[in-house]
């Protein structure tokens, strides 16, 4: 870098013919046979392109990386109105605090249960629906089913919550059915034991149809000759599905599974925040909602940042390990 600068300052004082020569001499061929470009040369040549990067990079620095750095208050005492990055170091004080907080472990368990239920129930359903759609032979019918099942994806979470309240209220459809079979109506939204089924049910309703898209797209890339070969070998439709279709969509499944595992702990924060009430805390309260209450409602910023950082690091670790495992076992990965 320093040599560049001296060459350049020399350039300016010399004649125009000489100014062209030194950069060419300093160029080296790199491995790919192209010329090695210094930053100075790159910026001189592409400065207009670099101006395109300024605003987005400033945006990312302020609204993504500054909050990341702001996580430092998990280790520091934060005073409202004081520095964004806290006043003085307290080490792992806040981590020990939540580690010894029984409420934290309750919400941690709830998070894992809801995350595991989503992964086990909600994740496979789009695959099954895509396979069922794949067997439809009436194009119009297929299109109508697709159009209808995609619709809930476009609804705001507030609308979904509203629909859940409507259906589960005492005068709602579910209780109408319960009354019709002669049982007593249930106050669903006041009974903690019903929260998980309701949550999972609403997730299924909203996400399953839309979730089929990537699988249906993967299905279109499977070579029909594979099915033909399987048929010649005497495979029936079920065997064709098992030995041709499923392997064909496995890479898609793996990638989506990795992404799902990565967001395992970030279970539907906004939806739960809308749906739950203190009566449902025993099953509905998850890490993110607890963090929200402790942090924003009660103002324990450092404490809740420590919890958030813990959650984010687990999330990152899960993605990285799921990715590494799948690359080794299945050969497909995110990167």
């Amino acid at each position: 870098m320093s040599t560049d600068v001296t060459i350049n300052s020399a350039d300016r004082s010399s004649t125009a013919v000489e100014t062209v020569a030194p950069p060419i001499k300093s160029r080296r061929r790199n491995k790919r046979g192209g010329y090695h470009q210094t930053w100075r040369e790159a910026i001189r040549k592409d400065w207009r392109l670099y101006t395109f990067l300024i605003l987005p990079l400033v945006f990312l620095a302020i609204f993504r990386y500054l909050p990341m750095a702001g996580n430092i208050i998990a280790f520091r005492r934060f005073r409202p109105g004081g520095s964004l990055f806290g006043d003085y170091w307290v080490g792992f004080y806040y981590f020990e605090m939540f580690w010894n907080d029984p409420t934290f472990w309750r919400v941690f368990t709830n998070t894992i249960i809801i995350g595991a239920l989503s992964l086990a129930i909600v994740f496979p359903l789009p695959i099954i629906l895509a396979l069922l759609l794949n067997e439809v032979r009436v194009r119009r019918f297929k299109r109508v089913v697709q159009t209808i099942t995609y619709l809930p994806h476009f609804m705001s979470i507030v609308i979904v919550a509203g629909i859940v309240f409507q259906l589960t209220s005492l005068d709602g459809t579910i209780n109408q059915i319960i009354r019709a079979v002669g049982a007593d109506p249930i106050s669903f939204m006041q009974d903690p034991s019903w929260f998980r089924p309701i949550y999972i049910g609403s997730e299924i309703w909203q996400t399953v149809g839309w979730g089929t898209i990537l699988y249906l797209a993967a299905l279109t890339t499977i070579d029909d000759q594979l099915y033909e070969a399987a048929r010649i070998d005497g495979a029936n439709r079920w065997q064709q599905t098992w030995h041709v279709t499923i392997p064909g969509i496995t890479p898609t499944m793996v990638v989506l599974l990795i992404l799902n595992i990565g967001s395992f702990l970030a279970v539907g924060f906004e939806k739960i925040l809308l749906l739950y009430n203190p009566l449902l805390y025993p099953t509905a309260d998850v890490i993110s909602t607890y963090l929200y209450r402790v942090g924003i409602a009660s103002g324990s910023y450092s404490y809740s940042t420590a919890i958030g950082l813990f959650e984010a690091i687990i999330g990152l670790t899960l993605v990285l390990s799921a990715n590494a495992i799948s690359r080794r076992l299945v050969g497909s990965s995110l990167w």
Binding site: L53, P67, A69, N71, F78, L84, S288, A312
Partner: peptide, 22 residues
């Protein structure tokens, strides 16, 4: 490098409280 800077934010973020304070 710039792509990496953007993609990294998909997998790790500042979290609720630091964003709120910012």
């Amino acid at each position: 490098i710039f792509v990496g800077i953007a993609v990294f934010t998909m997998f790790f973020s500042g979290g609720l409280i630091p964003n709120y304070l910012l």
